[in-house]
C-alpha cells in the first residue's frame, strides 16, 4: 500500500499558503506596532503596557509570568519581594529584591509598613511547588496593599532568563 505525502491531502497546500501569509504579515505588523513584542528576549526589550487592576481586600493577587514581570521591572514598576528565609535570600535572589520571609512575617512589620505603594509588589520564592510567594502576597493584600502580584515561576526561571540575556549581550559585545 502506498502512503500519500501529507502535502497532497486536500486543503494542506492552502493551509500552508495561509500560514505563510499569516507569518509574513504578523511579523511585519509586529515590527511596526508600538505594542509589538521583541521576538528575542534581550535587556533592551521595549516596554509594554501590562493589564493589571488594583486589588480589593481578600482578592487573589494575579499570577504573572516571566514576560509580564520583565515588562514591569524594565520600566521600574516592580519591587521584588523574596518570601523565602533570610539564609536562602542570602544565597541568591533577584537583583533589587528585598527579603520578607513569610515564616517570620510579624518580625518584619516595620519593613512592610515602609513598603512603597506605587510599584507592584512582586512576591516570589523558588518556583513551584513553593507556595511562600502565594501566602505572602495574600497577607499583603489583606494588609491593604492593592498592587500585589505573584511571580510563580520564581527565582529559578528568572535566573534562566538573566543567564540568556547576559549570554546574548556578551555575544553582541
Amino acid at each position: 500500500m502506498r502512503c500519500s505525502p501529507i502535502a497532497s491531502w486536500p486543503g494542506v497546500r492552502h493551509a500552508i499558503y495561509l500560514t505563510i501569509i499569516a507569518a509574513v504579515t504578523g511579523l511585519a505588523a509586529n515590527a511596526i506596532n508600538p505594542r509589538g513584542i521583541a521576538i528575542r528576549c534581550t535587556a533592551s526589550q521595549p516596554l509594554h503596557e501590562v493589564d493589571l487592576s488594583e486589588l480589593r481586600n481578600g482578592e487573589k493577587p494575579p499570577l504573572l509570568g516571566t514576560v509580564q514581570v520583565r515588562q514591569l521591572a524594565d520600566r521600574g514598576g516592580a519591587l521584588f519581594i523574596d518570601a523565602r528565609t533570610a539564609s536562602e535570600y542570602a544565597a541568591g535572589h533577584i537583583a533589587g529584591a528585598i527579603n520578607i520571609p513569610y515564616e517570620e512575617l510579624f518580625a518584619h512589620l516595620e519593613v512592610i509598613n515602609a513598603l512603597p505603594r506605587e510599584p507592584w509588589l512582586i512576591c516570589y520564592c523558588d518556583g513551584p511547588p513553593c507556595d511562600l510567594s502565594h501566602l505572602l502576597a495574600m497577607e499583603l493584600v489583606n494588609m491593604g496593599f492593592v498592587r500585589v502580584a505573584i511571580y510563580e515561576p520564581g527565582l529559578e526561571a528568572w535566573q534562566q532568563v538573566a543567564a540568556t540575556s547576559s549570554a546574548e549581550e556578551a555575544h553582541h559585545d
Partner: peptide, 12 residues
Amino acid sequence: WNPAGFAASIDN
C-alpha cells in the same frame, strides 16, 4: 492590536 498583551496571556 496588542501582541505584547497576548504574549503575556500565552506566558501565563
